[in-house]
């Protein structure tokens, strides 16, 4: 899992290969008011990284 603070809300990246875990974790984080982006594997997550959107893992 990767966190990245932004200006307004905190954005959380969730990576898990189990669909149930991925979805439920996303729900849990959203229920406490966090923004979530979910990825089912590491490759997709890395591919989504661009120069404009810097993150730390």
């Amino acid at each position: 899992m990767t966190d990245q603070p932004t200006a307004q809300t905190t954005l959380v990246y969730v990576v898990d290969d189990d669909a149930g875990m991925l979805e439920s974790t996303q729900w849990l984080l959203e229920s406490v008011g966090l923004a979530v982006e979910a990825y089912s594997d590491g490759r997709k997550f890395l591919d989504s990284m661009t120069a404009q959107r810097l993150r730390c893992a």
Partner: peptide
């Protein structure tokens, strides 16, 4: 463990919602 952890997550989230 996978479905149980998912259940806990969904239930906790639903409780907060």
């Amino acid at each position: 463990n996978q479905p149980l952890a998912s259940i806990v997550n969904f239930a906790s989230a639903s409780q907060r919602f």
